[in-house]
Design a protein around this nucleic acid. Sequence first.
DNA 1: TGCCGCAATGTTAGCGGTAACGTTTTCGGA
DNA 2: TCCGAAAACGTTACCGCTAACATTGCGGCA
Lengths: 335, 335
Amino acid sequence: MPRRSSGRVTLQDIAERVGVSKVTVSRCLREPQRVSETVRLRIEEAIEVLNYIPNRQAGALSSGRSLSVALLVPSISNSVFSEVQRGVDEGLREAGYQVLMGHTGYSILEEERLIDTFLAYGVDGFVLSSTRHTDYAHRLLNRARLPVVETMELTDNPLDINVGLDQRAAGRAIGEALIAAGYRRIGFCGARLDYRVQQRLAGWEDALKAAGLSTQRCQTTPRPSSYRLGGELLSAMLERWPDMDAVFCCNDDLAAGALFECQRRRLDVPGQLALAGFNGLDITDATWPTLTTVITPRRAIGEQAARLLVERLQGAPCDPSCHDMGFEIALRQST
Amino acid sequence: MPRRSSGRVTLQDIAERVGVSKVTVSRCLREPQRVSETVRLRIEEAIEVLNYIPNRQAGALSSGRSLSVALLVPSISNSVFSEVQRGVDEGLREAGYQVLMGHTGYSILEEERLIDTFLAYGVDGFVLSSTRHTDYAHRLLNRARLPVVETMELTDNPLDINVGLDQRAAGRAIGEALIAAGYRRIGFCGARLDYRVQQRLAGWEDALKAAGLSTQRCQTTPRPSSYRLGGELLSAMLERWPDMDAVFCCNDDLAAGALFECQRRRLDVPGQLALAGFNGLDITDATWPTLTTVITPRRAIGEQAARLLVERLQGAPCDPSCHDMGFEIALRQST
DNA sequence: TGCCGCAATGTTAGCGGTAACGTTTTCGGA
DNA sequence: TCCGAAAACGTTACCGCTAACATTGCGGCA
């Protein structure tokens, strides 16, 4: 009993219509210059007429390359990663790769699960948005011998390629900027507390300690970040440390939420309290007052990740490397 | 010359180690109860030890089902769609499907390209976030005979399943709410002007006309929506219609941007100008004053889409249907 | 004329799974 | 003890495409 053919148009159908073998059709699609002009035109016509859509699964199975790459981000709703995604997507699409996206919900266990899933899908490479993974994820990636880019933060010990920025230095820089602006009782407010946030916190502490200032005004929570949470955290901080004159929020969402809370309390920003955020999202440049923040080169990180990944995919040898994409302090009205 | 095997562990490797045929191993993975206890345990052990990861491409090629579904959204950075995505993802994952996401950048041509791409990947179904497609996309979808869910807005003529809300009715409702609150010189400000925004605009006009009010205070642009744009549009409107007493912004980003612009101009909201947005994003409940908006059931739309899609994937017949998920007006401080 | 080399195309043998059907084993009941 | 059906497992033939090698045809040159 012959297996039911899916009914889809296949290479064979094209080949029969044109009167060549299916290898020639396949070749025509992959290396057009290796097929004669006349045959090529007739094949192209047949593809058009029959509405042929190549079956990537079959192609991937046969060639061992799927021309797809997995991009794992912590959260889709967080606009921080949408810029990275755009950069990655653009760079990889140019090179003929399709990006398959997954979101880990900030969980390395979920990341592990997704790595497994995408390996099953036969992706040719990974772009991860962290340098922290489970042991099993490490083993999976090592065994698969695929190019991997770890993005966002830097690490001393990259799996393969690492593109990001020094989160701790950025935290320190914004701390120093606040100190330079004359603030002395500077608070830190952080949510989610993933590795990157911890680094920013450490940088903030570095700056304050170096200036001989107290680092006690630190309010953190494992809850996910949101505008409202920014307001709640700020309220709690104002209660505990009424003398606080500036707050560095670990991200822009919290900073904006804190700003709204100040408005609600008729607290003048920056007159009575200065605010600073992190990432440089659109909103920081739209609020009143505009928000001081650390602008992170998310788009550039994505593009660079794509560029390096493509090099590896096209044969460059595996040579672990780190790429510091820097950051920029944007001093705005809120400080 | 034998073809270079990818080096990956395959069913065959498991089978050899256990001393059974690979069909038995395959069966053990798909229908465990059809394999004897002892063999099953030994197979499971071998899978564990050898770190076997099934090759989905091969499975899909052979069975004709890939257990994956494409979800196409206009924009990843727009949080409106991340809620839909979450709903879809959750519902489909439960049923064993993997969601592959693509973003169209609000272009139906790009949507067409993505449909083509994902058909090549052999997805088993589509979730689209519009009811507007190119002719070619229509043909592709019809020919593929796959279940398709069109989401967000409603249509009289669904391709297959349609889950969304009546955008025009929602626009009318917010218009009526503003009128009921006593506003009479109500403006509309819109960006991007995709189909949904046009519907909201039409609804707003319906409400104003029904109340005998002027619909001239309408400022639109094809530019993509953003906070800053909200401010710019509001400025332009205040210049043209200084007597305006309320503005319905086609989405929350514009409304928030407009609010920030009011703060910049020291214009009291709602005292001097009332503002309303659309979608019910987090920010509307965080700003000061909080923003009146239309809360759209995005999560529910995603979940319902997933539910209906799974039914179809599991054999329910194709029977075009529309599902109105409704909306809710949230009157807040800004009106 | 005969031989060489290259361009254009074809043949073969898989890639790693699964559907369909075939065979063997097991076991209860007549 | 023997029979027959179900449970357990195996064989075969693909799914649609491509790598590697084989073949054909033709022009150019000695």
